[in-house]
Computed example of a mutant assay.
Amino acid sequence: MTYGSETWSLTMGLIRRLRVTQRAMERAMLGVSLRDRIRNVEIRRRTKVTDIAQRVAKLQWQWAGHIVRRKDGRWGPKVLEWQPRTGKRSVGRPPTMWTDDIKRVAGSRWIQAAQNRGTWNSLEKTYVQQWTSIG
């Protein structure tokens, strides 16, 4: 379910859909129907499965740090700093980018912060927590 999730732009809609799917899978694991009216917290207690939002956020944070620390000349770190030259901007709010949430936690100089693993790992809990507290 989390294949490729490191590169997703996390949105509230995406998190909601992932959680709904996860709850359906957990109910199937337990053989519980929606008609049984068992609360989600009880199902989660029985299955002992990690919340999908936490898992995806953690994977994304670790992947971002891994990509930024690469020094082998691949295109990954270069793409993170790329700014498109399109001329006119489209109407409305710009789409959420992959790095927007990371910048919100680690600051605009997040690429430099990721070079220090200790600092980066200490910020991970804050990043994961922002997606856990939602919904």
Results as ranks from 00 to 15, higher is better:
T21H: 08
R23I: 14
A24F: 02
A24N: 12
A24E: 09
A24K: 14
E26W: 06
R27P: 10
A28L: 14
M29T: 12
M29F: 11
L30K: 00
L30P: 05
G31N: 08
V32S: 08
R35S: 15
R35P: 00
D36S: 07
R37A: 14
R39W: 03
R39G: 14
N40M: 11
N40W: 08
E42N: 06
I43A: 07
I43C: 07
K48S: 11
K48V: 11
T50M: 09
T50S: 09
I52E: 01
I52D: 00
A53W: 02
Q54F: 03
Q54P: 00
R55Y: 07
V56P: 06
K58T: 14
K58D: 14
L59S: 11
Q60Y: 05
W61F: 03
W63V: 00
A64L: 02
V68H: 01
V68S: 02
R70W: 04
R70T: 03
K71R: 15
G73D: 06
G73T: 04
G73E: 04
R74C: 09
W75E: 06
G76P: 03
K78H: 09
E81G: 07
E81Y: 00
W82V: 07
Q83N: 11
R85K: 14
T86W: 04
T86H: 11
T86L: 10
G87Y: 02
G87F: 00
K88F: 11
R89L: 07
R89P: 00
S90P: 04
V91N: 07
V91T: 13
R93Q: 08
P94L: 05
P95E: 10
T96M: 06
M97T: 15
M97P: 00
M97G: 12
W98T: 01
W98G: 03
T99R: 05
T99G: 00
T99W: 03
D101I: 00
D101T: 02
I102S: 05
I102P: 03
A106Y: 00
A106K: 03
W110C: 01
I111M: 14
Q112Y: 02
A113D: 06
A113K: 13
Q115W: 06
N116K: 12
N116D: 15
N116M: 02
G118E: 10
G118M: 07
T119Y: 04
T119I: 10
T119K: 11
T119N: 04
W120V: 06
S122I: 03
L123M: 15
E124H: 04
E124Y: 01
K125Q: 13
T126M: 08
Q129S: 15
Q130A: 09
Q130D: 10
W131V: 11
